[in-house]
Design a protein around this nucleic acid. Sequence first.
DNA 1: CACTTGGTATACCGATCGGTATAATACCCC
DNA 2: GGGGTATTATACCGATCGGTATACCAAGTG
Lengths: 188, 188
Amino acid sequence: MDNKTIILSRALEAFAARGYDGVGVQEIAAAAGVTKPTLYHYFGSKQGLLTALMDIYLEPFNQQVAAAAEYRGDLPATLTALARVYFSYAKEQPVFYRMLLAMSYAPHNSEARLVSATQQSQQYHLVEAVFFSAARDHGNMRGRHQLFAANFIGLMNTSISLWLNGSVKLDDTLLQQVVRQFQYGIYS
Amino acid sequence: MDNKTIILSRALEAFAARGYDGVGVQEIAAAAGVTKPTLYHYFGSKQGLLTALMDIYLEPFNQQVAAAAEYRGDLPATLTALARVYFSYAKEQPVFYRMLLAMSYAPHNSEARLVSATQQSQQYHLVEAVFFSAARDHGNMRGRHQLFAANFIGLMNTSISLWLNGSVKLDDTLLQQVVRQFQYGIYS
DNA sequence: CACTTGGTATACCGATCGGTATAATACCCC
DNA sequence: GGGGTATTATACCGATCGGTATACCAAGTG
């Protein structure tokens, strides 16, 4: 691994463990076995380092979500596909997902939030679009896309959060439970 | 208002807006119109300031939750009462609730998380106990108390989060929706 | 009056913050 | 071998970090 990759890896670990504001650039450089100017050569700034992290890890995730979010008339199937993408990505990149969760709920004016907001809202809109399309087939859902999207993503993140803490197994059983739990409440 | 109260108030605003790590003690003192030694006279440390904030705001909240979490054989009624407490408290103390949400999802080793963890887990256990008791009447719930508690609190927080961003109205209609959305998924 | 007590300010501490100017390497292409 | 280009380290910047030693001052108490 070259230094650039090592820096990214150590930065991710540190940010996920103690938060963007809780970690100094110096510390990341030391953990990566380089000095600060090396880090600044590659990323320009602390914010640039976080942006690079988000770009690298979030892009493939967003693509998978976009693919799973294509609504073809079967809402349960679409939701299951979406949950499968979320669960499998969390299992693939647990450390990054930890950081992502913290940033989703970080204060609105924090530096970390500003960097992550754009790309995360993309995902949100993709999920929202699913419910917007599905409203053609389920009239009683109309006007509640935003709430549904937020609730569905929230439910998935709750399970992933429990899994990250070692409280549950993130398997197909739980996935079906999440989809069912959410779905039954929709039609009411 | 005396200086102690002013400091607490300004600290809450700052922490909620930019996070515990993102705000310096100096800045809080300046916003309160005092100097650092005054702040340290009352709270001893930055962590002490956060602890004082959590104690003051969380104690009445926890008491209300404890009262609402008494299960008397009617699960829908208990959940509705719980949601009512959460919603009304969020409306009463929106700035504090913002800070609380951020801390719930903050990285595990961050200073802010360590301070807030104890008191927040109290609430979590209260809600979990509701489902544990309800499992006597609804056998199919058995063994899933933790997941149910996390999901229910998560659903409420999602709504409150949307409300804090001005996306939804936090009224009785939404409250019923949350309870129903959650409830229908339980019995499956 | 003398004396304590709680609250506040001036001025300072060492450490760390994010960031950089400069220069020395190491490598590749000519 | 020469000339770039990319990568790295030494050493430093001003600012801010959390925290404190000291002393002043107002209010209450004997």
